[in-house]
Design a protein around this nucleic acid. Structure first.
Lengths: 346, 346
DNA sequence: ATAATAGTGTCTCTGAGACAATATACT
DNA sequence: AGTATATTGTCTCAGAGACACTATTAT
């Protein structure tokens, strides 16, 4: 029953509370109850509560096979999506996720989901944002506590979930299409009251070519696959006044993506781009041993711009350490393999 | 009733969904239903849902009166707390906050709460983190979607809430007491499997001296006030392995603060310290016109260290602009007043 | 006059940006 | 041999840190 919890759970809560040293337990409230008595008598109110789900934006770097044996393969920033087998948004693609159970934290729920979908458990993960628009789910009131995970897709065996839906990496492209500014002047016309910056971003998600053996079993129809491009237009409105500033996202168009997941993905990409600049976040996308050029390519696909090699190497030099291994059979000079210098970074 | 919603709400949801261009509505699922039919027949499941509240960490800069007329007043970073008049945590101090209603977003709920408590509506606010430990509230399953707000306390008329509890600014001090590292080696003893960094932080909250006229009406007993110092010891555990890293907070001691609010405040202070370094966030704590020294003091109390004047002025020069006003009767050379250059920062 | 802060000048050092030059395996 | 990438070197310029010096008011 909604809001009802078993006695064991109640007992545990009480212990938790009492274990924290505090003065409250002996105090009596206006009804003359101690905290212990209050909690024993407590009945959760019968008002409406939201469902709370976690949605995960799982990033990885995928690569496309090159025809020229000498050239390096082109890299992409990719996101894992699942095709929905049920209403609402039937046959649309959605982020992996699920409802949070009463005995777990949101992070535990997210890790459980990640494990089910990819088989991975020890990966980098961080909480992104909690989306609470009451109309974001057409069924009922559902909040989404979103997470971002960074993984190396080579470690993954993709598994279609119980609901027999497809799972697929989608190459993500997120770019600014246009922007405009509005200046709202004060009544006397002498100052500025408010500035609004309106930007339109395009989010494109196209299925990655299947090169991984584990994906063959999914038997996706390749001809159909080429036409499948998910597309969303997001309007980002930044409002500034002297006192405050606020950012708001709106979905102007949305083709093939479920719920507000285009918003969540856009938010994740923005966060990733920002954090990559000042942390070693991108290293979580790499295999154990990698070349510096591979790492630079990862940075480049995330930031959407090319970087100068010497500057890049200087910047990340404290984050990596040399191994004694080199690449082989690459059609050009072999390059040294590096690994994460994770021990030092604490 | 739990999970039940009225028809009007159902209608609105349906429209929202349909307004988004998508292919789903015509599709039929395995039961042969279109999305419209599915939603019309949809009954929310009768499983347990969490309550979701917002908690707000409202920061401001308060100042203590100096005896020496020449010296500048000492500044503090302060947080607004409310004394609880009911169980649980009766007579403990808590962050302002409340439950989210089904017709509003978390941010709207937070702004509503801020308005009730301080009378302010247009202030800087950002979502912090969603705390989901199922045992964080001894009553029942309650998640907290936390927000941080930055305000100028001179604009505030503090109002005791309906539950007749006290409202008070608390000077916040948050500092590292000690840290230790543990290295867990691999079985063969040749490498490192895991590094754990354990830090203990002390969070102290002491009531600010009442200097604001609006606070006089609260008639706090000053002798009692001096003894009232809230104190929490937080243990921050950072676990690193080659693949992942995770951060966990634990409350080792907690005197006088309700729930896990010490964790939320600590998280907010850490976020504020980080963001102040690379944004103009601190400007939201200032009055409309301020001296550069005042602004520097705000930075200093947030970061907990002194800054060099010329370097500081260079760094924030793009964020502020001159006015024609000067301070007066200060016992030393008057200083120019500046204001936020908010129009340019977009 | 003096205490205390306001405001500016400048020297040094570091780090990022930009371009150049050399090295090397694989077909 | 030729190609494409690997790797290192260095010049310049901007910005942060550090210290010093001058200016100005109320008591």
């Amino acid at each position: 029953m909604q809001g009802r919890e078993d006695n064991q759970d109640r007992e545990e809560r009480k212990k938790e509370g009492i274990n924290q040293k505090r003065k409250t337990p002996k105090l009596r409230d206006k009804q003359g109850l101690t905290e212990e008595e209050f909690l024993a008598a407590y009945q959760p109110g019968d008002y409406v509560r939201p469902s709370v789900a976690t949605d995960m934006v799982i990033f990885t770097i995928t690569e496309q096979e090159e025809k020229n044996y000498r050239k390096l393969s082109e890299k992409n920033l990719s996101v894992l999506l699942i095709e929905r087998g049920i209403h609402p948004y039937l046959n649309c693609w959605a982020l992996p996720g699920g409802f949070i159970c009463p005995n777990e934290t949101a992070e535990q729920a997210a890790r459980r989901e990640l494990q089910e979908e990819t088989g991975l458990s020890h990966v980098y993960m961080e909480q992104l944002y909690t989306f609470t628009d009451p109309k974001r789910d057409p069924r009922t009131w559902v909040m989404s506590c979103s997470y971002m995970a960074l993984i190396d897709c080579r470690k993954v065996r993709l598994q279609a979930g119980d609901d027999a839906a497809n799972v697929q990496w989608f190459h993500a492209s997120y770019r600014l299409l246009n922007e405009r500014k509005e200046y709202h002047h004060t009544e006397d016309g002498r100052g500025i009251k408010e500035i609004i910056l309106i930007q339109e971003y395009e989010l494109l998600l196209s299925p990655d070519k299947i090169e991984h053996p584990a994906l063959d079993s999914l038997m996706l129809d390749t001809t159909k696959q080429d036409k499948l491009i998910l597309r969303a237009i997001l309007q980002k409105t930044i409002t500034k006044t002297e006192e405050m500033e606020s950012v708001e996202y709106q979905l102007l168009e949305n083709y093939g993506l479920a719920f507000d997941h285009a918003k969540i993905i856009a938010y994740a990409i923005e966060r990733l781009r920002r954090k990559v600049e000042y942390t070693g976040l991108a290293l979580h996308l790499m295999p154990t041993e990698f070349t510096l050029t591979q790492l630079q390519q990862a940075y480049e696909v995330i930031l959407g711009k090319t970087l100068l090699k010497p500057a890049f190497r200087r910047k990340i030099s404290e984050l990596v350490e040399e191994t004694e291994h080199y690449t082989e059979k690459e059609g050009h000079r072999p390059s040294r393999l590096f690994r994460r210098k994770w021990e030092k970074q604490i």
